[in-house]
Amino acid sequence: MNPSPRRREHLIGLRGMPKECIERILDTAAETKQIFGRAVKKLPTLRGQVMVNLFYEPSTRTRTSFELAGKWMSADVVNVTVSASSVVKGESLIETAQTIAALGADIVVVRHPAAGVPRLLSRVIDASVINAGDGMHEHPTQALLDLFTIREAKGTVRGLHVVLVGDILHSRVARSNIWGLLTMGARVTVVGPPTLIPPGLESLGVRVRFDLDAVLPEADVVNMLRIQRERQKDGLLPDVREYRAFFALTEERLRLLRPDALILHPGPANLGVEIVPQVLDDPRARIHEQVTNGVAVRMAVLYMLTGGGGRGVAA
């Protein structure tokens, strides 16, 4: 493994990223978001640069969001979707990435089912690597857009009580949120069944609770994570009925939530599992706003990684 010949900036995760750095991304996103109102949604920043979306997992939302962000920044965007079933696991990861870099990619946005892959790629290819989700590790742009959405609605993240609900164990969204929220001075509580809570969270400064009804009234933000139905098969959940009874955001539980609370969901939602459809229409929900903000935040990250914001997004 040879190190990159040029110093490139990468976005691998939020753990360890300094507060000032997160703030700079959010500030930049506030500016990029302004072009959404314009007739011509285009900034010239990445003209002549090649951005490759290298996706080893299907994801319409995140890939489309990155694609739009790249296009509105004037990059040439190429989507490479590697079907998990068509490759033996791990077979040619490094070679594929090196090929893509050799074709002239300046930015590689990678999603992969295995933790550590974006960092691994950043060591072997000469391009800026953006983590679009790696296994259970991190999904930093999702957490940044959640932080942006919270800050936009509340003015600040500091001092807020943010509750993450659901499958924390398998969730890279939860992890990136936890690190970003703690850095920004929020209090973080996770709620879910013990089989879906990873060990050691308390030692990292996170409160762990199993009683959602007791936590909801004291939440400023509640972020409902997606529940994969496979967890039943894995023997980690009895069934959906049981999960709904204790952890779904239902109409009754909406009444426990304060009027000024925010409801987030990283999407796509399993309606009737972790949330009921009525949540989408609740005035406290920011679920559609999150999608819009996702593009703004990703534009900000692209801008900063490619020199617009100077160094410092390398965490």
Partner: peptide, 13 residues
Amino acid sequence: HEGAAATVRGLKG
């Protein structure tokens, strides 16, 4: 190893 270090790394314990 299952523990905080695995949780942070997103690796199964």
